[in-house]
Simulated scan of single mutants.
Amino acid sequence: MVGGIRIAVAALVRDGLVLLVHRHPSRQAYPDCWDLVGGHVEADELPEQAVRRECLEEIGVQVHDPVPIAMAVSDPNLDVHAFLVTRWDGEPVNAEPDEHDDLRWFRPGDLAELKLAHSGSLSSILNAVQVATN
C-alpha cells in the first residue's frame, strides 16, 4: 500500500525459534498481543535502516544483513516492510519496557496459540523460520 503508515519489523530467528515481543496492555495500537520487533519508518529512513534502528532501540541488538520477506497484514492503513534476521550482535533484552512487557523465543508450532498483533502474518512468520532453518 502506498501512503500508509510505514512500519519495519524483524523476524529474528535462532535455532529454529523466532523472537516476539509482547506489546504492553497500555499501548494505543495493538495492545496486549505478541508482535515482531519493529516500529515506524521515519521520513528520512529506508525500511532497512528503520529495522536496524528499531532492533537496537527495542531489544539492544545490532542486526546484520536483514533480508526482506513478504508479510501479510490485514490493516489497510499499514505499509509493512518485514525482514528476516539471522545474525546480530548482542543478546536481545527488553530495552523499551513502556512499549513491551515481555519478549520470548517461540517454536513455530506455538505461534498459532498466541494472540498476534496481525493474525494474518502467522504464515509469513512461519515461512521466515522455515527459510532461516534451511
Rank of each mutant, 00 (worst) to 15 (best):
E42F: 12
L46E: 15
V73C: 10
D32R: 04
L17N: 12
Q130Y: 09
N134S: 13
R104N: 03
A128V: 05
R52F: 06
E45F: 04
S124C: 03
G60I: 08
N94M: 10
C33A: 10
H24Y: 13
D102S: 03
D44C: 02
V13M: 11
A128N: 11
S124P: 07
H81E: 04
V85M: 07
E42R: 13
N77A: 06
D15S: 12
V21T: 15
S119V: 11
R14N: 08
V9L: 12
Q130S: 15
V67F: 12
V51Y: 15
A43S: 13
I59F: 05
D32K: 02
R6M: 11
I125S: 00
G90Y: 03
I69S: 00
A70H: 13
I69R: 04
V61P: 01
N94K: 04
A117C: 08
Y30N: 15
Q49P: 06
W88Y: 11
R87T: 12
G60Q: 10
G109V: 02
G4Y: 08
P108K: 02
R53F: 10
L19W: 13
L103I: 02
H118R: 02
L56S: 13
S123Q: 13
A50R: 03
W34I: 00
P97Y: 11
V37C: 03
N77L: 09
H64Q: 12
D35F: 09
A43M: 10
L111R: 02
E48Y: 12
V2T: 14
A11W: 11
L114G: 04
D35G: 02
I5F: 13
R53Q: 12
E58Y: 14
H118M: 01
P47G: 01
T86M: 12
R27N: 15
I125W: 03
L114C: 03
L116D: 14
A95E: 15
P68G: 04
P66R: 06
D75W: 01
D101V: 00
L19M: 14
D65R: 12
D65P: 00
R14V: 08
P31A: 05
